[in-house]
Design a protein around this nucleic acid. Structure first.
Lengths: 121, 121
DNA sequence: AGCAGGTGCTTGGTATACTTAGCACACATC
DNA sequence: GATGTGTGCTAAGTATACCAAGCACCTGCT
């Protein structure tokens, strides 16, 4: 649910944004819905801010409108937070955390060693 | 859309990814759920790949785990991933090499350990 | 006047994301 | 042994994202 923002917040403008992009691309609801593989009534409701589409659908729509998914998520307020505040300077730690070849224990070990080298922080 | 892939595809690994990050952060399900403002049973189901969380929830979890929403979406396969995963195993070594806080010896040590963990190649 | 094909929107239902209550097991402390 | 607190998981319900069918309106055609 995440608060009441569900209905008032960025989702409203997201619908307007989609409608704008759709009209800009000279597509009817049915056309866009067809391409994005969603139903046209649903698209209608999304554009009027009645529903908040899932990221799946969002990506599909972005694709159909030939804009990046990132732009879409940004408009949806899903990327907002201060651009990687906590992690931006953790190049090594971040890379370690994301490495699928390492077990959790191995990650912990590596990070511990890394921090001992850099003096924590 | 996402017919069978809904349950077999990237969503499975997303759950594993979340679980890994959670354990790495030394958080229990209830703790993480508390921070991310979702219920712990739901988190359990997400981690086992039974459900695909909405972008909203995904962002919330990412936030709670102190990783960027983008990384989360990339893992979920929701971002036309142009980057992020390609660096998966070169990522760590590369990040180590680029870190200005590490001495050459320290870099060599870390990389050696890292390779011993991954079985090198 | 009629119908054919376009537009966006409403209705009613299904699938699934998500929650609250509670189970089953482990490890303590009494 | 009992009691309390931790863990993850199950069951059953609610909320909502999403779809198929169809309505109301407009425009052009014959």
């Amino acid at each position: 649910m995440t608060d009441e923002e569900s209905r008032n917040g960025a989702w409203r403008t997201l619908g307007e944004f989609i409608r704008g992009q759709r009209e800009l691309a000279n597509l009817s609801m049915r056309q866009l819905a067809e391409i994005a593989k969603i139903s046209n009534p649903y698209l209608s409701q999304v554009e009027r801010g009645l529903y908040k589409p899932s990221a799946d659908v969002l990506k599909s729509i972005a694709n159909a409108l030939q804009i990046s998914a990132e732009t879409m998520y940004a408009q949806a307020g899903l990327l907002d937070d201060t651009r990687g505040e906590g992690e931006s300077h953790h190049g090594v730690e971040h890379a370690i955390k994301l490495d699928p070849r390492l077990s959790v224990d191995q990650k912990e070990a590596l990070i511990r060693i890394y921090r001992s080298f850099t003096g924590a922080g």
